[in-house]
Amino acid sequence: MSKQGGRGFTLLELMAVVAMTAILSSMALSSYSEHVRRSERIAARAVLLEAAGWMERRFSVQHSYLGADGQIPILPAELGQSPRSGAAKHAISLAGGQTHAAAYQLQAAPVAADKCGTFTLDHTGARGLIGNDAPFAECWGR
Rank of each mutant, 00 (worst) to 15 (best):
G141T: 08
I92M: 02
M1W: 06
H63I: 09
G67V: 08
R38Y: 12
G131K: 00
R37S: 12
F136K: 07
Q81R: 00
R57W: 11
A16S: 14
L29C: 05
C116R: 01
Q98T: 11
A102E: 13
A22M: 15
P76L: 00
S64Q: 05
A91K: 14
R41Q: 13
K3E: 15
K89D: 07
A91N: 14
Q105P: 04
K3A: 12
R142I: 14
L94G: 02
L11R: 03
A22V: 13
A46G: 05
V61R: 09
K3M: 12
S85M: 12
H100F: 15
Q62Y: 09
E40D: 13
P83N: 00
A109T: 13
A51R: 01
G131T: 03
T21M: 15
L121S: 02
E34L: 15
A43D: 11
A103F: 10
Q98Y: 08
A108F: 00
F59M: 13
S25R: 08
A134D: 13
S85G: 08
G117K: 03
W140Q: 11
S33G: 10
L79R: 01
G53E: 08
R38I: 10
T118F: 01
T118K: 05
P73K: 07
I42H: 14
S26N: 10
G97H: 09
S93Y: 03
L24E: 04
V111N: 06
L29I: 12
R41M: 10
A19L: 15
R142S: 15
A126L: 09
L48V: 04
P83D: 02
L24P: 07
R38F: 11
E50G: 10
E138G: 14
K89T: 07
G5R: 11
A16R: 10
G125D: 04
A44E: 01
L94P: 04
P76M: 04
G96D: 00
T99N: 06
P110F: 02
T120S: 03
Q4W: 07
T10C: 07
L121P: 00
G125S: 07
I74F: 04
S60H: 12
H123I: 14
G97D: 00
L121H: 00
F136G: 06
A112G: 08
I42Y: 13
F9S: 09
S39F: 00
E138M: 14
P73I: 03
S60F: 11
A103E: 05
A68R: 08
I23A: 15
S60M: 13
L14S: 12
A101E: 07
L11S: 01
K3L: 13
G86M: 03
R37M: 13
V47N: 01
Y32F: 08
R37W: 12
G131A: 04
I42E: 12
S93P: 05
L79W: 00
K115T: 15
G96R: 15
A113N: 10
G131N: 01
H100R: 15
H90N: 04
P76A: 02
A28M: 08
V47T: 08
I130H: 06
A77N: 07
G117F: 00
E13Q: 08
H63A: 14
P83W: 00
M1L: 07
S93H: 04
S60K: 13
A52C: 08
D114I: 06
G53W: 05
A68N: 03
S31R: 06
R58Q: 09
Q107I: 07
A91M: 14
V111T: 13
S30N: 10
T99I: 07
